[in-house]
Design a protein around this nucleic acid. Structure first.
Length: 803
DNA sequence: AGCACGCCGACT
DNA sequence: GTCGGCGTGCTC
């Protein structure tokens, strides 16, 4: 009989990054299983802490007496064996704590919160007790919301033993229920009850009549509506013992709107080849990774849907990841239209409760197709038949804080576990993936043609340096402007993309060059016309727009750079009749705003959709025949080895938005670097050439995918502390590295200061360093305690950027 | 994360 | 001489 549970405790430190043994009290024997959440006493005061049962054991090497598990929080494990094993793997590969990994796999609703309760003891003087507690027998200590002095006096009382502080773990998982009403007795008994009613009790009679003919349960709300009775009438019937109320669990349906069912489309030859390869892999339980490379508009989604359908027909489940930004109703609608109620959708727009409901539907096997953003990769599906990552090159698949996992890596791990294929789909695969396909690590599947044989749009690169010489400064070249006018005349729509947000990137004094910067962060403030303020995009600092230069008091302080608001203003001047929808971070902040604006554009209530990167992905508007990229360069100048790749991806994606249906499309790319290979090759939609060219650049610069990389960041409120720590780490790590490894840095972060913290970083590029992992874990252990002094060390394996 | 233990400065 | 500052180490 197992009496010991090994538990990962919710204390994220290096020392507790291993299971702790707890005894299972007799009352809980048999109800403790791996993957369940438990509450255990921990530390000196045995405060209550949440933990995960890692495994059960017969014995332990811990020599001192064990504490016992306090409570079991779940009836069923919330994490299965697969996910427990995955957490272990993830902890090792991302240098994160096991507990952090376990928690990221769960919906927020299942992440417990801690409460601090203060209770008076007998020794507390009555007067003070009354003043502090009043009638309550205990007080909730709200996360230092209390004034400083009150907190201090409480602490004093605690140390004097006059009050005690206890910790409680509170489960946040709240299940939504509705009240159902059903008869408490058979129809003949109800009939008899009805006979006892007084003649004035009309409503009661109606109610009983209903249940005599409809014995099945009905939602109270519906019942009230259907019979026009009030809740008090029902309550009376309940009191009389005729009816019973019961709470029934319901799911909050985030997509309650009806979807139109869709049927499988006919595939072209390339699609057919891809689908049958994937079907075979699923049917043969082959854990292979496929790179599905298809130009924009080549029908990748239909390939996914048919591969998913095959898995479902085998009685298996399917997981599909899309970037958050393209989790638009269009994509979701298509999947839902094909698979209906079997689809669960997970994205950041859901409330914690909705997310939890979707998660439970998956966990119970009610939903077997999961569509979601990055974290949906942890969906608790059983028997997965296929995993798909759409737009696999997207940077959003990499989590930017601990655990710094890449969804692609997790997908491949799960694919191996389930012996099922993983599909990485993209028109512009990441260099890493494409290189692996080259080496035969991934199987390449090509979709070289657009469906319906629609032609790729005609792309024109506009040299803005020329434009500047010919005309006054404007965001619109002559060519783009006349094309816009043409579309309006023909009643066709246009999309304009801008590489940034805000009205203008910064203000600068034309006399002395002064740039208004954030007092907390080392970046320029951005002008926001809607709030008439200068804002910091990093920390949210806000201040009024200056009229005179704070440095030289000149009045020639002007706005530089370009933002969507400014473009919109200019657009209204040059095309006063155009109906424009502006989409950027500012106009889409509110929940559902994104959809609303897109739907409006889809209904052709506007001529021009103006937006930032967010409009480039996954939209399909048949009436759009013109796409203009106003400033293709932004980003090219960044000191980041992926700058060219990102620019190429963006331009290729956005160009694909034009002319997808019967009408031919046209694209204008405005740039100050017309000869840059990323722009020229995007113009030709020539991914293969870009891949070869960029691979040469990467090879020359010793960048991924030729090298692996690790980024270490030290941050602190004290600049010297961060710098010194980093210098020390460099010395330490140098000893373990082979001569072939390359170190970049230490350098101050690209933005050296964010929110009053200073950043120093080091990037290591390497091919094979067997001792590196160990060294990095040692560094983490060593700097564990410095967190309290404000020094934090972060390790990012294979970072998305070196900045 | 929270708590105890332990070693140096301003009080009864 | 003590109270209490927070640096350090440990928590099954």
């Amino acid at each position: 009989m197992t009496q010991i549970a090994e538990i990962i405790v919710d204390v994220p430190t290096m020392q507790t990054n291993t299971p702790y043994s707890y005894s299972i009290p007799p009352a809980l024997t048999g109800s403790v299983r791996p993957g369940m959440r438990v509450v255990v006493p921990f530390g000196n005061g045995s405060r209550k802490v949440q933990g995960f049962v890692w495994q059960l054991a017969e014995q332990t090497d811990f020599s001192r007496p064990l504490k016992a598990i306090d409570t079991v929080m779940d009836l069923q494990p919330v994490l299965n064996q697969e996910l427990l094993a995955l957490a272990d793997h993830m902890a090792v590969t991302t240098y994160a704590f096991k507990i952090t990994c376990l928690l990221t796999m769960l919906p927020n609703a299942l992440k417990a919160t801690y409460e601090k309760w203060v209770m008076p003891t007998d020794t507390l003087e009555e007067s003070i007790r009354k003043k502090l507690f009043g009638h309550a027998d205990r007080l909730l200590l709200d996360d230092s919301k209390l004034p400083e002095e009150q907190l201090k006096s409480l602490l004093k009382l605690a140390s004097g033993g006059k009050v005690t502080v206890s910790y409680a773990v509170r489960d946040r998982g709240n299940v939504k229920t509705i009240t159902m009403i059903e008869p408490a007795m058979a129809a003949d008994k109800l009939q008899a009850a009805k006979a006892t009613l007084r003649s004035t009790a009309k409503k009661q009679a109606v109610l009983l009549d209903y249940f005599i003919t409809h014995p099945e349960p009905i939602a109270q709300r519906e019942l009230e509506k259907a019979l026009a009775v009030s809740s008090t009438i029902i309550k009376t019937a309940e009191k009389n013992g005729w009816l019973v109320k019961k709470a029934v669990e319901v799911y909050r349906d985030p997509l309650a709107t009806a979807v139109t069912p869709t049927r499988a489309l006919t595939l072209n030859e390339a699609q057919q080849t891809a689908v049958s390869a994937l079907k075979t892999a699923t049917n043969d339980h082959k854990a292979a990774t496929y790179l599905l490379e298809g130009v924009t508009g080549s029908g990748k989604t239909e390939v996914y849907l048919q591969a998913i359908d095959n898995a479902l027909q085998n009685g298996q489940s399917a997981l599909m990841l899309v970037p958050e930004i393209s989790l638009t109703p269009q994509i979701v609608g298509r999947v839902r239209g094909r698979f209906g109620q079997r689809v669960a959708v997970l994205h950041s727009g859901l409330s914690a409760g909705e997310r939890y409901d979707e998660w439970r539907r998956i966990e119970r096997g009610e939903a077997t197709v999961v569509v979601g953003a990055r974290s949906a990769i942890f969906a608790p599906l059983e028997n997965i038949g296929i995993i798909i990552i759409d737009e696999e090159h997207e940077a959003t698949y990499k989590q930017e804080d601990n655990p710094r996992y890449h969804a692609r890596d997790i997908a491949i791990w799960r694919g191996r576990y389930h012996h099922c294929p993983v599909v990485l789909g993209s028109a512009t695969p990441s260099l890493e993936s494409r290189a692996r396909a080259q080496k035969g690590v991934y199987q390449q599947l090509l979709l070289p043609h657009r469906i319906n044989a629609s032609a790729l749009p005609k792309v024109t690169v506009v040299d803005m340096t020329q434009e500047l010489q010919n005309h006054a400064e404007s965001n619109f070249s002559t060519a783009l402007l006349s094309a816009l006018k043409q579309r309006m005349a023909k009643g066709e729509q246009s999309i304009l993309m801008l590489n940034r947000r805000g009205y203008s990137s910064f203000v600068m004094c034309r006399d002395c060059g002064f740039v208004l910067k954030c007092p907390n962060c080392d970046i320029s403030l951005t002008l926001h016309m809607d709030t008439k303020t200068m804002k910091c995009h990093y920390c949210g600092h806000e201040e009024p727009i200056p009229n005179v230069c704070p440095q030289c008091h000149s009045r020639k302080i002007r706005y530089y750079g370009t933002g969507t608001q400014k473009v919109e203003t200019e657009l209204k001047e040059v095309l006063p009749d155009a109906q424009v929808i502006r989409m950027d971070v500012d106009t889409t902040r509110r929940k559902g705003a994104h959809e609303r604006l897109l739907n409006k554009f889809g209904r052709q209530e506007a001529d021009i959709l103006l937006g930032t990167q967010m409009i480039a992905k996954g939209l399909d508007f048949p009436n759009v025949t013109l796409v203009g990229v106003l400033n293709a360069d932004t980003g090219l100048g960044l000191p980041d080895f992926r700058a060219s790749e990102r620019t190429f991806d963006l331009l290729t994606q956005v160009s694909g938005r034009a002319g997808r249906a019967d009408k031919p499309g046209q694209v204008f790319i405005q740039t100050y670097n017309p000869d840059h290979y990323a722009i020229q090759l995007a113009k030709d939609q020539n991914y293969e050439r870009f891949f070869l060219t960029e691979m040469q650049m990467r090879h020359r610069g010793h960048y991924p995918p030729y090298y692996y990389s690790v980024k270490l960041t030290a941050s602190s409120g004290d600049e010297r502390q961060a710098a010194e720590a980093m210098i020390k780490i460099v010395r330490q790590i140098k000893k373990t590295l082979s001569p072939a490894a390359i170190m970049l840095g230490p350098t101050p972060g690209a933005v050296a200061r964010v929110n009053n913290r200073y950043y120093y970083q080091l990037v290591i590029k390497y091919k094979q360093e067997p001792a590196l992992d160990q060294a990095l874990f040692e560094i983490l252990t060593e700097y564990q305690s410095t967190g309290r002094m404000g020094l934090q060390i972060a390790i990012d394996r294979n970072p998305m950027s070196f900045m």
